[in-house]
């Protein structure tokens, strides 16, 4: 409600945004049990999100997309992070825990997958929404007023009466609105949405997506939308990044990636999106499964599942390089045998 940025013209959308967050060579290592060794889940990820930009991060489960998102807020206490995450000119990975805490909820906020499990069952939803403000020393009455305003804005029925209700008294869709309100009440500039619609049924999914669309437009909010479902991406995001086995393999404008995907993995994902006019028997799935992080194949991690692989794919790891307006990590772009 406060910082309403004017929507840029459709024509100027593409390159001229001011960067809000730039991620450079981000790696995430998770410890293995108590053995002291660790496994690299996210392996050198670079990307930038502009002010007010909506970007989708797509990948199968285990691709590292959720851990990438959590790394931006340093939410995993066990994860070891390296690289740079510049937000508004400060490297988040170098901040003290205290300063990082101040940024969470007020500059960067997050919405999670299953709204029930991400709400404290023992606290009223009014208190949980207001908490983001109360932590920052805002008075009880004021915090409650602002929580109510956000809940109203997000279309929670009878919000005023239900501030003192507990999470289990809400339906799935309403809970997701509460979770969204929790994230928005601190008026962040970047919202990370980690599969916010996956746990909801289809009808409610659309409502929540519309709401997210609506709210981010109105507030000029940048959104990093994490999903495994390319079908959801098309209507919502401006740009899409495809992640596979801890790396970004393709990054480009939604329209151009959908029209002409460059990476064989992206091609497979797009082929796998079911269409209404499609015969159910012809549903496509990429053969095989993504490699576990402890047993990544040599060369391009996708090559064992790739229908266009050639000799070099099993040997060299392809780098993410610019191709027109996009970036792609695939040897096919250099030509076979090059």
């Amino acid at each position: 409600m406060k910082t309403v940025h004017p929507l840029p013209d459709a024509a100027s959308v593409v390159p001229v945004r001011q960067p809000l967050i730039s991620v450079d060579k981000l790696t995430v290592d998770m410890p293995l049990g108590r053995s002291g060794s660790s496994v690299r889940i996210v392996d050198g990820v670079d990307f930038t999100i502009g002010v007010g930009e909506r970007v989708a991060l797509v990948g199968e489960s285990g691709s590292g997309k959720s851990l990438t998102a959590r790394a931006l807020m340093r939410l995993d206490r066990l994860a070891k992070l390296s690289g740079r995450v510049d937000f508004d000119g400060t490297d988040l990975l170098k901040l003290s825990d205290r300063d990082m805490g101040k940024l969470r909820g007020s500059s960067i906020a997050m919405v999670f997958q299953d709204p029930m499990s991400f709400l404290d069952p023992l606290m009223t939803i009014g208190d949980q929404v207001a908490e983001t403000l109360r932590i920052r020393g805002i008075g009880k009455a004021e915090a409650r007023k602002r929580a109510l305003a956000v809940l109203d804005e997000l279309g929670v029925d009878r919000a005023a009466e239900r501030l003192d209700a507990y999470p289990h008294e809400f339906s799935g869709g309403m809970r997701q609105r509460v979770v969204l309100a929790m994230a928005l009440v601190g008026e962040p500039r970047l919202l990370i949405a980690d599969e916010p619609t996956t746990a909801l049924d289809v009808r409610v999914q659309d409502q929540v997506l519309d709401l997210l669309d609506d709210v981010s437009t109105r507030r000029g909010l940048a959104v990093l939308f994490i999903t495994h479902d390319l079908g959801v991406v098309a209507g919502f995001a401006e740009r899409v990044m495809v992640m596979y086995s801890g790396r970004i393999v393709e990054d480009g404008e939604v329209a151009s990636v959908f029209a002409k995907p460059s990476h064989p993995y992206t091609q497979g994902l797009i082929k796998a999106v079911p269409r209404i006019d499609q015969d159910l028997n012809t549903l496509y799935a990429i053969p095989g499964a993504p490699p576990p992080p402890l047993a990544r194949p040599s060369g391009c991690p996708f090559h064992p599942r790739c229908d266009q692989r050639f000799d070099r794919c099993g040997v060299d790891l392809p780098a993410l390089q610019p191709v027109g307006m996009s970036r792609v990590a695939c040897h096919l772009l250099d030509g076979k045998g090059a």
Partner: peptide, 12 residues
């Protein structure tokens, strides 16, 4: 969550 899932193979 991701962390315990990853810790599993070591424990087993």
């Amino acid at each position: 969550m991701t962390a315990p899932a990853i810790a599993q193979p070591a424990a087993r």
